[in-house]
Write a protein that binds this DNA or RNA. Structure first.
Length: 812
RNA sequence: GCCGGGGUGAUGGAAUGGCAGACAUAGCGGACUUAAAAUCCGCUGGCGCUUAAGCGCCGUGCGGGUUCAAAUCCCGCCCCCGGCACCA
């Protein structure tokens, strides 16, 4: 009799069987009676080494995948690699390895480790975004976007990461630092390519309401990021000029209190309207416009007078026009009307430059007191015919008045900016346009795609390596055939991940990105699993892409991910496990010691999936012990010559069995509470010790326990299933069923806690068919209960059937 | 500052209005063993009473409230984590 199991042997055996039999492959055709399910994990950047954070992500997905298959779903469960991006390029700079070679090795390593974890992907659908067969479709989509006006080029203030040597989208700057390398981001002016995500701002916002399967936290983050504000655009005419300056405000009710205007330093019309010292103004602009946005601290407010005044459109007052360093060009109209009495920023500015402050809103309990702005709502004062009105109403009426008199209009603005996709790096998708002196910007012809990354480049660590290729840049114009130069910017790698989930359906299709009909039949993704750090990045970009592709007629749905599970981070020493932080516990080291089955079981048992987990080996041994125990019981069982007895198993056992199956099923399917599901399986196994080897209870219970543990620890479960005489391999077996009727029929005794004034005094054991009145009577007869009710006045007798009794008594 | 999420034994966690601490880990005690490992059994929230079986009181960040009953709902506060941060 073998005592312990050899995880290495068993895991290898079953991985080979699964692969040989192609158990997890799935065809694109969905039969009429088949229930399809698309389960997806956020694909990884192939760092080359899996750590426990990855294991957590994949264990959640794979366990659920195996559960779904066993419950009759036709399951699509693919894996791929987000293989473009800076780390590979940095490796090239540091170690002189070509990125494509480097990344191939990394992917190979990742795949080996993923297989060793026993993940049940359909490997034939592998997607690698760094292959030209993938990224050519980025280029193709780019050209479609260009044709539709969804891709465009503009010169604007951009975020520049000096360490990565490239521009960044707004979403990729966190607290003024680069999301990848945490360097301070600088603001520069640069001409760059953008995707027009703002075109979908309203829809991206509104449709969040329909995403019932998404965590509220993610939806809120997206809502805040999109940042919708409604208000009015008000035009301020300049004195002695035909110019007027439009400003956006959410508080038209404060318009009478507007005593100056502020323009963003980058405002394009400054030099046309300024009449002060232009040199000084230019100096101010230079100082403030291009700067670092490193800040937790709010910068000191600074401004400069333009030497010109505007007219307040309501009261005709002459008000000065300034430039101010805290006004954003990218938001609203790049100009604001300042109401110092009712906006703290304007208040500070007014104090600094000695500008007039006029109170126009008076709140009921707080109001403007001269020390700081009053920003709340209230009754209007000093506002002509609007005086006395409440803010809410005044906003409406003043806006209508502005519309009637042609001085303004209702307006909605968003914080969301267009997605800057240009990157000055090599290891990304070349943007497929050329610059022709005669024809201007010309897209590469579809038939000439892909524009491949050239091999003859130098990685010096300075500048864009693409510019060092001798042949890449020089090309001919697709329109006129004349000499032209190729764009050397590549795309943000978030472009790759914005549609990879569609490519899994047709990973090898070479004449289009994917087959629309098949994609429509599988998508949206039924369950997506990934980290919350992508709440606004990848998840917002993908929602935008899906809509844009829908409007291009390429898909027929607008939301890509129906349900979203954000798993918690695996944390070590206080920060997220990652190779760059050097705090990883690798999947390999855990795997060597305990095996994949234990590693998976433990990480799922340690906490519910959405919670962060501070990694610790403490406890993993418990899961290892549990599997060993189960294994030993199965060995005992197969060693027993005795045939299981006939007749029906005892009620206590049946109750335990069916209840266990029920709990495990509910815990997995309702809310991914794998930790409690595993606890229930442990209880079942512990309960089986009451029955001797060879008894039918033991035999039945073991089979069920092995079956239930299958999704979590698939190798050893498959092996045990075989040992127990399972005919099919476990992953092709059905999921155990439970019978609610058996659960209630076999409930032999009911334990009813009896409390007096809410304090537990006794537990009453009764048969489940005892009438309620008798239960109360029995409870009152109990010695322990009488101690607390005798001689006192009974106020109330509460019996919540099958749950609890509470007697409310009063001292007399 | 604003918006989220959270705070339960020594530890990971369970319980979402009805027995607080399931299931584990760690610890302690015992069995087996020459010994250790492995395995198995028992105990394990705090305080107090009791020779003992047992019993009582307290206890889910803090303070109040609702309720027959609160970790769970409501109000106020403290602390931790995450996101946003001069967006007019």
């Amino acid at each position: 009799m073998k005592k312990d199991f050899s995880h290495r042997e068993i895991e290898k055996k079953w991985q080979d069987i699964w692969e040989k039999k192609g158990v997890f492959r799935v065809s694109n055709r969905i039969g009429e009676r088949e229930k399809k399910y698309y389960l997806l994990e956020m694909f990884p950047y192939p760092s080359g080494e899996l750590h426990m954070g990855h294991v957590s992500n994949y264990a959640i997905g794979d366990t659920y995948a195996r559960y779904l298959r066993r419950n009759g779903y036709k399951l699509l469960y693919p894996m791929g690699y987000d293989a473009m991006g800076l780390p590979a390029e940095n490796a090239a700079i540091k170690k002189g390895i070509i990125p494509s070679e480097w990344i191939k090795k990394c992917i190979a390593n990742m795949m080996v480790q993923q297989r060793q974890l026993g993940l049940s992907y359909d490997w034939e659908r592998l997607v690698n975004t760094s292959e030209s067969e993938y990224y050519r479709w980025n280029q193709w989509i780019f050209i479609k976007f260009l044709e539709k006006g969804l891709a465009y080029k503009k010169k604007a203030a951009i975020n520049w990461c000096p360490s990565c040597g490239t521009t960044l989208a707004n979403e990729q700057v966190e607290n003024g630092k680069c999301w990848r390398c945490a360097s301070d981001v600088e603001i520069r002016i640069k001409e760059q390519w953008y995707f027009k995500i703002t075109e979908y701002a309203e829809e991206l916002l509104n449709d969040l309401d329909g995403l019932y399967g998404w965590p509220e936290a993610v939806k809120i983050q997206q809502r805040n990021w999109i940042g919708r504000s409604s208000g009015a655009i008000v035009r301020f005419k300049l004195e002695d000029s035909d110019y007027s300056i439009p400003v956006f405000t959410t508080r038209p009710d404060t318009l009478y209190g507007s005593t100056f205007l502020l323009l963003a330093p980058q405002h394009p019309e400054i030099m046309d309207i300024a009449s002060g010292n232009k040199e000084e103004i230019q100096r101010f602009i230079n100082e403030t416009a291009v700067t670092s946005i490193k800040e937790k601290e709010v910068k000191e407010k600074k401004g400069i007078y333009l030497g010109i005044n505007a007219v307040n459109p309501l009261n005709g007052r002459s008000i000065p026009v300034y430039i101010a360093n805290f006004v954003f060009m990218e938001y609203g109209t790049g100009a604001i009307m300042s109401v110092p009495a009712h906006d703290q920023r304007d208040f500070e500015f007014a104090k600094k430059y000695g500008l007039e402050i006029v109170e126009v809103i008076r709140g009921s309990d707080t109001k403007y007191d001269g020390t700081c702005a009053y920003e709340g709502p209230g009754k209007l004062i000093n506002s002509d015919k609007f005086s006395g009105m409440e803010s809410r109403q005044a906003i409406e009426e003043i806006t209508s008045y502005l519309e009637e008199t042609g001085k303004g209009a209702k307006s909605v603005q968003y914080k969301l900016r267009d997605w800057l996709i240009s990157r000055q790096r090599y290891w990304g998708t070349p943007i497929p346009v050329v610059y022709c002196e005669k024809c201007g910007i010309v897209p590469v012809k579809e038939c000439d795609l892909p524009v491949k990354l050239p091999g003859d480049v130098e990685f010096t660590g300075k500048g864009n390596p693409l510019e060092t290729s001798s042949g890449f840049r020089q090309t001919s114009c697709p329109e006129c055939g004349g000499t032209a130069s190729r764009e050397t910017d590549t795309m943000d790698t978030f472009v790759d991940s914005s549609w990879y989930f569609l490519r899994y359906i047709n990973p090898h299709t070479s004449d289009k990105p994917f087959k629309t009909e098949e994609v429509n039949s599988w998508l949206p993704v039924d369950q997506y699993i990934g980290g919350i750090e992508h709440a606004v990045l990848h998840l917002l970009y993908s929602r935008f892409f899906t809509r844009a592709l829908c409007d291009l007629g390429l898909v027929n749905f607008r939301e890509p991910f129906r349900n979203l599970l954000c798993q918690g981070m695996v944390v070590k020493d206080g920060s997220k496990m990652s190779k760059s932080r050097g705090n990883v516990v690798t999947a390999d080291e855990i795997n060597m010691k305990y095996g994949a089955d234990t590693a998976r079981l433990f990480i799922l048992f340690a906490s519910p999936p959405e919670k962060d987990l501070e990694w610790s080996d403490e406890g993993i041994n418990g899961c290892y012990r549990f599997l060993k125990k189960l294994w030993r019981m199965v060995q005992e069982e197969t060693d027993t010559a005795k045939k299981p007895d006939e007749g029906s198993p005892d009620d206590k056992f049946l109750h335990l069995l069916h209840n266990s199956v029920k709990s495990v099923t509910i815990d997995i399917s309702r809310d991914f509470h794998f930790n409690t599901a595993i606890a229930r399986i442990m209880e079942l196994v512990n309960g089986l010790r009451d029955y001797p080897p060879g008894s039918q209870e033991r035999r039945m219970g073991l089979k069920t326990a092995v079956n239930l543990i299958g999704p979590f620890s698939p190798h050893i479960a498959s092996e045990m299933w075989e040992l127990l005489g399972g005919e099919k391999i476990l992953d092709e077996e059905g999921w155990p069923e439970y019978d609610e009727k058996i659960i209630s029929r076999t409930r032999t005794v009911m334990e009813i806690p009896v409390t007096v004034n809410g304090k537990l005094r006794e537990k009453l054991l009764v048969s489940p068919d005892t009438p309620d009145a008798d239960i109360l009577k029995l409870a009152k007869e109990k010695e322990k209960v009488r101690q607390f009710i005798d001689g006192r006045k009974m106020i109330k007798e509460i019996y919540i059937p099958k749950k609890i009794i509470n007697f409310v008594v009063k001292e007399v």
